[in-house]
Design a protein around this nucleic acid. Structure first.
Lengths: 332, 332
DNA sequence: TCTAATTTGTGCGTATGTATG
DNA sequence: GCATACATACGCACAAATTAG
């Protein structure tokens, strides 16, 4: 019961001494998973320290996932692993192929003693809120992909400002947080402008855009490009029940529709470049070889993951636009 | 009568423990509609808790419509309809493209009130152990992908037997648990046997196999097939620094090596079927259109997710082999 | 039902030593 | 030497949950 010792006048801060006491007790199994720690007040009385000092110590243990607190009951050992120094809350929109590169490069650039818990909100505001509220106070960093959802600031503002990193899509309401994001509007506009000569050869530029999952910036950038260069265009939601016509060029962020286009193309014996142009949004492995290579516009997910890992150790707030490029292959 | 248990010094409030006891008794039909609950005083005496604590518990049950009180008589079960929210622990090996179909179909076939937490062990035994130990007691089901790791039973055996579901790879040490798995050896053997005529046309059958991530069953099935049908074969770890030769057929579970093969093929102006054959393991979206379609051997991940969702509600232990098939396209 | 005790959680104010520029 | 920021530490008050009698 009295495994906590705090000494005066040594160079180790008192709250660290309390943390070390608990760590030591875990290592020699005096404390085990599920055990209750002495209450804050009893530690304060026995060791004549301030309540806040004990709280500071317990908070560090909580953020590291070692203890868990229950109001009205006390603090309990949640994990006996004292090696974890930081825990990261990572909230993605959905699990898909693009996440693979991002997540893996994030992990590979992270220290071994940092633990990452991954969650998905599936574009559902209730799930989004619940996950964030449940995680409050339990992590040392909160990396959040708000995607294209509205009013996420109402929830995120409940987290400590300096522990939040906004990922992928940036919203003006979230200006106060560190962010690593894509400038969708500019990226798509620049990429298309770079290849305007090729695009001009087609009769019509068709963008397959789903408002539900895709960022509005993509649409804006596309529209701006078309207007500025006087290119006939159309925005549709899906290729499912649509005919394909000669000399159309498609911008496709979604792989299912990419497949549909290529199938319809083959049905009509159309050829890439000669009859149909395709630009795919988001690079994934196989696009390099599909139909001899599909031109893609994509941000660098590996770089994004690396930057994200770097940001964890840094205190100043930053806004980082992740680089994007067009990879030209034989499809336009 | 003594289905109510209250423990001191654990992180669940005593009144919640009483609620949980009643819920549990209703689920296994120890309690039924119309049954009388033990009196407040008898619960107080047997479990040495305060009267108010019992009252608090009964009040919650009353508000939820599960019990009703009759003055002077006692508390009675009004409805057996307890919908306790379930939490599912889902432990994957790594985040990759195949998980997308599996995870999404699992979620789509799940009740709305079930919460799923997803974790990744990255084939690291320490991470595997820590995640399972820390999750102990916090979930109503534990879905675990042991992948090809050894000695996972030592850890998994600490979980309640009837709450564990083993996913994807089955190990003899884990025979006592419910499992939804691929019979890799048989699946690959059957799929190859079905197309033995096509395969016989090639000079050599090459399997690109990584011991670290891929199940041993794949190798066994491949070897058995080759031996039985007298097919010259070779097993290599990667295509990275390997030349491609005329009339070789490749079995490739990994997309990076798939791309390497196709690139090397094109460098030599080889054609699919005529010079080189390719079978890819695990179906993903774009394989339908890569090089006019790549033949794949794959389990049905959507079906696996659906089965998994069904299994959550079922008590009996089951072993389910997930169906697998060969999708023949113009690559062998 | 009421009162009281214990526990965590949060906010505010204050003070001190140290590092930085 | 001075101003500032930051980490550490203390004290107090009040809210909310838990539990006892």
């Amino acid at each position: 019961m009295d495994f906590i010792s705090v000494k005066e006048n040594i160079d180790i801060p008192k709250y660290k001494q309390i943390v070390h006491s608990v760590e030591k007790a875990l290592l020699d199994h005096t404390l085990r998973k599920g055990d209750r720690l002495p209450s804050i007040n009893s530690i304060r009385n026995k060791n004549s320290v301030s309540r806040d000092t004990v709280l500071l110590a317990f908070n560090e243990l909580k953020i590291r996932g070692i203890v868990q607190s229950v109001v009205g009951k006390g603090y309990f050992i949640k994990s006996e692993n004292v090696n974890i120094k930081q825990r990261v809350f990572l909230l993605f929109d959905e699990l898909n192929a693009f996440k693979e590169d991002l997540y893996n490069s994030f992990l590979n650039n992270l220290d071994k003693n940092i633990e990452v818990d991954i969650y998905f909100h599936h574009f559902n505001p209730d799930v989004f809120s619940k996950l964030i509220f449940d995680s409050m106070g339990n992590y040392s960093s909160y990396i959040i992909m708000p995607a294209n959802m509205k009013n996420t600031d109402k929830v995120i503002d409940n987290l400590p400002e300096d522990k939040v990193i906004i990922l992928d899509q940036f919203h003006p309401e979230l200006f106060k947080y560190t962010a690593i994001y894509q400038n969708f509007e500019r990226d798509i506009y620049n990429a298309l402008t770079k290849e305007v000569k090729r695009l001009k050869k087609y009769k019509k530029f068709i963008f397959i855009f789903s408002e539900f999952k895709q960022p509005l910036g993509l649409l804006k950038g596309f529209k701006r490009f078309c207007k500025e260069f006087g290119i006939a265009n159309e925005v549709i939601a899906t290729m499912e029940s649509r005919e394909i016509s000669n000399r159309e060029v498609y911008l496709v962020p979604d792989d299912r529709n990419l497949i549909r286009i290529i199938k319809k193309m083959k049905e009509k014996d159309y050829l890439l470049i000669e009859n149909i142009g395709i630009i795919s949004y988001n690079e994934t492995l196989l696009k390099e070889i599909v139909e001899g290579g599909i031109t893609t516009i994509s941000t660098d997910f590996k770089y994004m993951g690396k930057q994200l890992a770097k940001m964890l150790g840094i205190k100043e707030k930053r806004k980082i636009e992740n680089p994007s490029k067009i990879i030209l292959r034989n499809s336009i």
